[in-house]
């Protein structure tokens, strides 16, 4: 049995899906982030000055790019897989001789690709406002891919466990968005009182944003190695949990 064809089929289907609805998937982040760059980066940022030697515009660009990667990789998988469940197309996959890891890999790859594509769109928008000299392309790219993987996996689990469309909006609205904004997108964690600095260190998104910022502009509040350990740990844990849910058929089988 050639599983690579099944894998490619799922990934291709996912890519066509989000490209077909590009006004919902690719256009909004371009407009939203352009407004961020204009209002926070340009109008307000010019009055703020520098953080860790970087202009405020340069400082917020990596965080906004990664925030877009996070939200769109998550949104792609959670909405696509939940719709598949809701419309019962999931039965096509369950009846077919596809191992669970191929189903998981296909959907997560779709999420990673959309997350990175949105990241590229936001990066291009940012170039209209500032010039960025990349500090370490390998770290920037690897953190972007790993972060997209973590949140694609999380979106997959959310979709499996969701029983209504409300359930797929709770995590993005009440967990991801607050953690992203509190993850140092617009400020350095060193600017916080020490107690809030310590609390912030419990936020995994803080590590991802800072490591990505290091890759792009060479500025970080965290240890880069720790970021790889955290994201790697999340990927392993979430993958195993996803495969367990698929194996048991929780949320997808009667």
């Amino acid at each position: 049995m050639n599983y690579s064809i099944a894998f490619r089929t799922i990934v291709t289907k996912e890519i066509f899906r989000f490209i077909r609805i590009w006004p919902q998937t690719l256009l909004p982040p371009a407009i939203t982030t352009a407004l961020y760059f204009l209002i926070f980066g340009k109008l307000i940022g010019d009055r703020i000055g520098t953080i860790s030697g970087a202009s405020y515009m340069d400082y917020i660009v990596p965080g906004i790019i990664l925030m877009s990667v996070i939200s769109h990789s998550y949104a792609n998988v959670v909405s696509s897989f939940y719709s598949t469940k809701f419309q019962r197309n999931i039965e096509e996959l369950l009846v077919a001789p596809i191992p669970n890891w191929v189903i998981l890999g296909g959907y997560v790859s779709g999420g990673i690709i959309r997350g990175l594509l949105v990241g590229i769109v936001v990066t291009l928008i940012s170039l209209l406002f500032t010039d960025i000299t990349v500090n370490n392309i390998a770290i920037a790219l690897s953190i972007a891919v790993l972060t997209a993987t973590v949140f694609s996996l999380a979106g997959f689990i959310n979709a499996i466990l969701a029983e209504s469309f409300d359930d797929i909006s709770i995590i993005p609205n009440f967990v991801l968005t607050p953690l992203s904004y509190l993850g140092g997108v617009f400020y350095s964690v060193n600017m916080l009182p020490s107690i809030w600095q310590n609390i912030s260190m419990g936020n995994p998104i803080l590590y991802m944003i800072n490591a990505f910022r290091y890759g792009l502009i060479g500025v970080t509040d965290v240890d880069i190695q720790m970021t790889f350990i955290i994201t790697g740990g999340f990927i392993i844990t979430l993958t195993l949990f996803s495969l367990y849910l698929l194996h048991k058929g929780i949320g997808i089988k009667n």
Partner: peptide, 24 residues
């Protein structure tokens, strides 16, 4: 199956091509 369970936004051809892909 008893009830329609294909993606109703897909074309007829792509429904069959995807299914063929799932079976390798």
């Amino acid at each position: 199956p008893q009830e329609v369970n294909f993606n109703q936004f897909d074309t007829v051809k792509s429904i069959l091509l995807n299914q063929a892909g799932y079976y390798g």
